[in-house]
Amino acid sequence: MSIEVRDIRKRFGSHQALDGVSLKVETGSLVALLGPSGSGKTSLLRIIAGLERPDAGQVLFAGEDATRQDARLRRVGFVFQHYALFRHMTVFENVAFGLRVRGRATRPTEGDLRGRVRELLELVQLGWMADRYPSQLSGGQRQRVALARALAVEPRVLLLDEPFGALDARVRRQLRAWLRGLHDKIGLTSVFVTHDQEEALSLAHRVAVLNDGRVEQEGTPEDIACRPATAFVAEFLRPEAVTISA
């Protein structure tokens, strides 16, 4: 499902987090919101999810206005930066949550639910972890549980907030490749937030660079890397100079 945001504005106190952001995400694509901390990328993601209300502007899902729609009705899968797994539930119950809270009419039977959760846990390669609690998992495993939980409700779009931010470099590379593979397999429209340009350029089909609540540039990774539209983009993408002071 396509996502479009039009001229989104959001202010927190005296801070203008988003200052007229417009963006289109095509059906089935994987888009990165890239920018330094405080650029507004997470706020934009939360507004798309319905966790935050914009002061002005519109959010459209498949061309339909969803700006006023409650988060629980949007059917977005949201993966939080620190996973936000339910601590008091097993991995299985975490993944099952979205199915258990459905109304009687659409709730699957216990048997169907078990099958579906097992399937998802296999998909994220954690079938053998079903009875563990989140505190017993590694960071990478928690991340995958969070993903399985988000996918359980058959979301129309997948939103990921700094999905690899809290992981060490090796796990991060593995998960990144795995996520790309997963996206290619299930083809779900996905948006992820990152401050890591390498991550954005290597993983996404399209990248939007944000700065100070505005989109500086939007395009393919190649556009961004080879033809930076503004001085900020050029500066932000420059490989960090390694300085070793004596």
């Binding site: 629980r72 009705l73 949201f78 939080f80 936000a84 949550f97 979205g98 809270v101 409700v153």
Partner: peptide
């Protein structure tokens, strides 16, 4: 509020 927000996005009332 992370866990509560997660519950909301998963469709909980």
């Amino acid at each position: 509020r992370d866990e509560e927000e997660a519950a909301r996005t998963l469709g909980a009332s």
